[in-house]
Amino acid sequence: MTADEGGLRERKKRETRLALSQATIRLALERGLDAVSVEDIAAEANVSDRTFRNYFASKAEAVVAAHVERGQRIGEVLRERPASESLWDALVHAVVSQFEPPPDAAAQPPDYGTALQKLLAEPAVQHEVFRAHATAQDELTAAIADRAGTGTDDLYPQIVAAVVSAGLGTAMANWTRDPGRSLVVLLHEVFDVIRAGLPEPR
C-alpha cells in the first residue's frame, strides 16, 4: 500500500466515523438515546449494522466521536497555520474554524438546547465525554508543543491546552443553555477574555 492509499483509507475511515456520530446525535436528539437502535443509526448513515459495530462499542461512544474528530482537526489546523502567526491567533483560528456553520445550515429548533443537555446528561455519554476531553486535550498539547518547539512533557503546552480546553468547554456550556446565540461569537468573546489576561470585570 502506498502512502497516498493509506492516507485515503484513513480519511475515509474518519469520514465514516463522523457520519455515524452525526447520525447518532441527530436521532438521539429527536427521540432520546434509549429509543434509538444501532440499526436505526446504521440506516440513517446508509451503512450496515456491522459497520457501526466495527467503529463503536456503544451508542454513547458514537455520540462523542464528533468531539474527538473535532479535537483532531483543531490540532491539524494549528500545525498548518503560518509560522509567522502568533500562537494565540493560530489557536483561536484553529478552534473557531471547527464551529463555523456551513452557509446552508438550518436554524436550530427552539428545544435544541434542552434536548442536547438531556443527551449529555446520560451517564454513559458523560463517561465518554470525559474520555473524549482527555483525548482532545492530549492532541492539542502535542500540536502546541510542535509549534512551540517543546516536548509534550513541558508545562507550557500542557497549560495552554488546558486553558483552551476550559475556554471551549465554558463557551459550549453557555451555548447549550442558549443555542440561539452564535457559538462562533461566544468563542471569540471567551478567548478575548483569556487573551487579555482575565482582567477583573468592569
Rank of each mutant, 00 (worst) to 15 (best):
P103W: 03
P201A: 05
R11C: 04
A142R: 15
A143K: 02
L91M: 14
P179H: 05
A106G: 01
A19P: 04
A65I: 04
Q22N: 13
I74H: 04
P123F: 05
M172Q: 12
V36L: 13
M172N: 11
A60I: 06
D111P: 03
Q72L: 14
P102V: 12
L155F: 11
A142W: 02
R70W: 06
A196V: 01
L78V: 04
A66L: 06
A171W: 08
R177W: 15
A115Y: 01
N54V: 05
P199K: 06
V47F: 05
E189G: 04
E189S: 09
D111K: 04
H188V: 01
T51L: 09
K12F: 12
S48G: 10
L27F: 08
L87K: 05
A106P: 15
V129T: 12
D154S: 13
T150A: 14
V96D: 02
P179K: 01
E189V: 06
S165R: 13
G149E: 08
G151I: 04
D146K: 01
P123H: 04
D146L: 15
K118L: 14
K13Q: 14
L33S: 02
V96I: 10
H188C: 06
L29V: 05
T2V: 01
R177Q: 12
L91W: 14
E122Q: 11
E139L: 14
I194R: 09
G167F: 05
R17H: 07
Q72A: 15
M1E: 15
A3M: 11
A28I: 08
L33I: 12
E39H: 09
S37D: 01
A83D: 15
T51V: 11
R9F: 11
A166D: 05
P123M: 09
A134W: 02
E139H: 14
L20W: 00
V68S: 08
F52H: 04
E200K: 11
E5F: 07
D4Y: 01
I41K: 00
A142E: 12
E189Q: 11
A62M: 07
A124S: 12
A45T: 09
H93L: 11
Y156F: 12
D34K: 07
L120Y: 13
K12Q: 15
Q22C: 10
G169H: 06
T170G: 13
D4G: 10
E44N: 00
L87P: 10
T176F: 07
A196G: 09
A162V: 00
D40Q: 04
D40F: 05
Q108E: 15
R26V: 06
E15A: 10
A62K: 10
N174W: 11
D4E: 15
T51K: 08
L33Q: 03
F130S: 11
R26D: 15
A143E: 03
E80N: 02
S37E: 10
S58T: 14
P103H: 07
S21N: 05
A19V: 03
E80H: 04
L27G: 02
K12C: 13
Q22A: 13
T2E: 15
D146W: 05
R50P: 01
G75P: 03
E15Y: 03
H67G: 06
L116S: 02
P199Y: 05
R81Y: 11
P179Q: 07
H127T: 14
V36I: 11
V184E: 10
